[in-house]
């Protein structure tokens, strides 16, 4: 494992954070989560289904799955469009999941699904004051990321591209700038389409990657989960190794010394 990711004083053995949305079944999700090697996985908070039969209570099986796999739950505030909704959802998640970690989402509208930066900073500040470990999903604006860090967030999670778009990292220079300036972990969240996107995020200096759709809606989710695990590790290693500078012209890698002088 290529180092650990420390968030809010907790060490995670994997730099890949998984989402759980979009999986066709809990069984398929379980196999993908195991293949990804993740130790932190998002869940959403929703009303319990009414009139469930049998022992397991509706979707609490999602909860049971993470408990069984020993994966830490990262409840999100997905679907919240206001500060108040997001704060209440985070508080409910703390009670339901027994964790004060929250992936904070304050979404501007349900078409773009882009983060609403003013509400996000306000909600983050309120939740930090209330004792939460806040991991905000934000845009790729370095100044918003700085503000989120200023109010006490434990990480910042800028998007690569809109949620579910699979477009990769649209503004790599901003992501690089955020990673260079942050003193908390930077986790690229949203937009990842394939393994090279995840590797690029790490090469740009991110500390981790959060993705869901790229795996859960892949033709072979388990195989893609494995690819993502390897890509995040590879990208992290490459970032640590230090890439060569880009050059305009070729540079021979074999020495010209001792070349044959053939009269051909």
């Amino acid at each position: 494992m290529s180092g650990v990711l420390t968030i809010g004083g907790v060490e995670l053995g994997s730099r890949l954070v998984m989402g759980t949305g979009g999986a066709p079944s809990l069984l398929a999700l379980e196999d993908a989560l195991v293949a990804s090697g993740t130790e932190l996985t998002t869940v959403a908070m929703r009303r319990v289904a009414r009139q469930t039969s049998g022992g397991a209570a509706g979707d609490t099986s999602m909860w049971g799955l993470l408990e069984r796999l020993g994966i830490r739950a990262l409840p999100n505030t997905a679907g919240c469009f206001s500060v108040r909704e997001a704060v209440l959802t985070a508080q409910l998640a703390r009670e339901a999941c027994g964790t004060d970690w929250v992936k904070l989402e304050v979404i501007a509208d349900d078409v773009t699904l882009l983060p609403e930066p003013l509400g996000l900073v306000e909600a983050a500040e309120e939740l930090v004051r209330d004792g939460f470990t806040v991991l905000p999903y934000c845009g790729d604006d370095p100044i918003v990321a700085r503000r989120l860090e200023d109010v006490g967030c434990a990480a910042v999670m800028p998007l690569g591209a809109p949620i579910g778009s699979g477009l990769g990292i649209l503004n790599p220079r901003n992501i690089e700038a955020i990673a260079a300036a942050a003193s908390v972990p930077v986790i690229l969240d949203a937009g990842i389409g394939t393994a090279s996107d995840a590797a690029l995020a790490m090469e740009l200096g991110c500390d981790g990657v959060l993705l869901a759709t790229a795996v859960t809606r892949a033709a072979d989710p388990v195989r893609m989960a494995r690819a993502m695990r390897l890509a995040v590790e590879a990208g992290h290693e490459a970032a640590g190794a230090g890439r060569i500078p880009r050059r305009e012209r070729a540079l021979a890698s074999s020495s010209p010394e001792g070349r044959l002088d053939l009269a051909l």
Partner: peptide, 10 residues
């Protein structure tokens, strides 16, 4: 009254 639980998402 709102009664909520963790489900797949995010």
């Amino acid at each position: 009254v709102e009664v909520v639980t963790a489900v797949q998402g995010g």
